[in-house]
C-alpha cells in the first residue's frame, strides 16, 4: 500500500461520512427513551428528590466522604508534576489518608474484631495489583483496580469506627 492509496481511502471515507447508507445505526430503538424523557421530565425530578430524602444517614456520610476524597485527590494531584508515575502519586496520597484515619481512630474502639484481618486481605490485593503494575505501569484497568482497593481500605477503616447511631 502507498501513501496515495491511503489519501484516496481517506478522501473516499470522508466523502461518505454523511451518506445515510454508510452511517452506523444504533443497535436498539432510542426513540421510546427520548419520548419518555420529554414527556416525563418533571416527574423524574420529583422522584429523584424523594429518593434523595429517603436515603439513610450512612449513605449520605459515605457520599460526603467519597466526594471529599475525590476533591482532595484532585487538589493533591494537580499540585504534583504531571510526569510522575500515576501509581506513585496515587499510593503516596492513599498512604497519607490511611495513616491520618488510623491515627484519628487510634483510641476509638472498633465495631468488629476482625477488621484488621479484612484490612490485611485488602493490603494483599493491593500488593498483587502493584506487582502487576510494575510490568505495565500505564495499564488503566489495573490502575482502576488499585484505586478501588485503596477506596475499600479507607471505607473499611471509616465504617468500623463509626459510632453505633450512625450505622443505619
Amino acid at each position: 500500500m502507498t501513501k496515495s492509496n491511503f489519501d484516496e481511502f481517506l478522501a473516499k471515507g470522508l466523502e461518505q461520512k454523511n451518506n445515510p447508507e454508510q452511517m452506523p445505526e444504533p443497535q436498539k430503538s432510542l426513540w421510546p427513551g427520548v419520548e419518555k424523557a420529554i414527556n416525563s421530565a418533571p416527574h423524574s425530578s420529583i422522584d429523584s428528590e424523594s429518593r434523595a430524602t429517603r436515603s439513610g444517614a450512612w449513605r449520605n456520610l459515605s457520599a460526603i466522604a467519597a466526594s471529599t476524597l475525590i476533591g482532595m485527590c484532585a487538589v493533591y494531584f494537580s499540585m504534583k508534576p504531571p510526569e510522575q508515575n500515576p501509581v506513585v502519586q496515587m499510593s503516596a496520597y492513599f498512604e497519607q489518608q490511611k495513616q491520618t484515619l488510623l491515627v484519628q481512630y487510634g483510641s476509638q474502639p472498633a465495631l468488629t474484631n476482625d477488621w484488621q484481618v479484612q484490612l490485611q486481605e485488602l493490603e494483599q490485593a493491593e500488593q498483587a495489583i502493584k506487582t502487576a503494575l510494575e510490568n505495565d505501569p500505564e495499564n488503566a484497568a489495573l490502575l482502576q483496580m488499585l484505586a478501588q482497593v485503596y477506596q475499600q481500605q479507607l471505607d473499611l477503616i471509616n465504617r468500623v469506627h463509626q459510632p453505633r447511631w450512625q450505622q443505619i
Binding site: 475525590i70 485527590c73 484532585a74 493533591y76 494531584f77 494537580s78 504531571p82 500515576p86 502519586q89 496515587m90 500505564e138 488503566a140 490502575l143 482502576q144 484505586a147
Partner: peptide, 9 residues
C-alpha cells in the same frame, strides 16, 4: 472517573 481526571489517563 476521578482517577482518569486526576492522573490524565
Amino acid at each position: 472517573n476521578w482517577l482518569q481526571k486526576v492522573v490524565s489517563i
